[in-house]
């Protein structure tokens, strides 16, 4: 592909975009609107996800140590774990403290029934771990499980599982929506490109007769699709950014779900995704409608 070809494609695309004004606009806005919808769903999902993560992190993790672990080992373990970046602080509860807590709050008779007396104490030493806000829980749990001294861990599993379930559901839902919107807009792009293709048939026949390859004929159309895809994506990104910043941020003051700490970096990732989707939509719409180009680019046979 030479520079001359590329510059020809771009100038052709520019001329054609100007000439096919309304159809070009239809393609552009189809892409922009579907990307806005996709982006809105992804943003909502990201938002809820980060809300869920915050909830998770507030849970305390309790690690029950094995019965044979002595107090000095427990202290050493506590020190070792405190250096982990996810952990805010760790409180070591000795069996005595645990029992004392129980005794101060419970009915002595009940405790005696389950076998706890001040002399024989079956309670293990435990670590109460407070996780730093915003940290993911799963990697920390994995890490804790590798410690020999730890017998088992409790962290409000039920709540965690529920959150995980909601969050999985959200991602699945937004994936379905993204695919659905993608296909719908691909269909519209396909049809508008098809339309412009037939409007320009005469020109295509001429290009083929002077020796243009199919890819050369497709070139300007693909560049057009690319320009429309990119422009549509930029419009949708600007629109989403403005709405998120100026409207939803206000809304967040009143609704607990909208955590406005989806940072710029998160938003940037979303923008990159939308940009890629716009580009892919524009190009694949063109490619799809030009796949059978040979069939339609014969010079009209003269009848007699």
């Amino acid at each position: 592909m030479s520079m001359a070809n590329l510059s020809f494609f771009f100038s052709e695309a520019a001329v054609n975009l100007r000439r096919s004004g309304i159809t070009a606009m239809v393609t552009l806005f189809t892409i922009a609107i579907s990307l806005v919808l996709m982006g809105a769903f992804l943003l909502a999902t990201m938002n809820l996800e980060s809300f869920l993560q915050q909830m998770q992190a507030e849970a305390l993790v309790t690690a029950y140590l094995k019965p044979q672990v002595g107090l000095s080992d427990a202290k050493a373990l506590r020190l070792r774990l405190t250096s982990l970046e996810e952990i805010e602080n760790i409180e070591l509860i000795t069996p005595e403290q645990a029992a004392a807590e129980l005794f101060s709050s419970s009915d002595d008779q009940q405790l005696l029934q389950i076998g706890i007396t001040p002399d024989s104490n079956p309670l293990p030493a435990t670590l109460r771990i407070k996780v730093k806000p915003g940290m993911r829980l799963t990697p920390l749990l994995e890490r804790l499980k590798t410690e020999d001294e730890i017998d088992n861990i409790s962290y409000g599993e039920d709540l965690f599982r529920q959150f995980q379930g909601i969050s999985d559901l959200l991602w699945t839902a937004s994936l379905v929506i993204v695919i659905f919107l993608g296909l719908a807009s691909l269909f519209i792009v396909y049809n508008t490109v098809r339309l412009t293709f037939f409007m320009r048939r005469e020109e295509i026949v001429i290009m083929k007769l002077v020796g243009a390859t199919n890819w050369f004929v497709r070139g300007p159309f693909i560049v057009e699709g690319l320009i429309q895809g990119i422009t549509g994506a930029l419009i949708s990104i600007l629109f989403l950014f403005a709405s998120y910043r100026f409207i939803l941020a206000k809304l967040a003051l009143f609704t607990p779900f909208f955590v406005t700490d989806i940072g710029l970096d998160q938003f940037f990732k979303l923008a990159v995704k939308l940009f890629m989707m716009g580009t892919i939509l524009g190009i694949s719409g063109s490619l799809l409608s030009l796949r059978d180009i040979s069939r339609y680019s014969k010079s009209v046979p003269e009848g007699v």
Binding site: E202, E203, V205, V210, G211, F216, S294, S299
Partner: peptide
């Protein structure tokens, strides 16, 4: 089919209904 464009680059074609843009 893919070689046809290269054939046509060596040909000049003037048809009655092969119009100008």
């Amino acid at each position: 089919e893919s070689r046809v464009p290269y054939l046509r680059r060596n040909l000049g074609i003037v048809l009655q209904d092969f119009q100008l843009l």
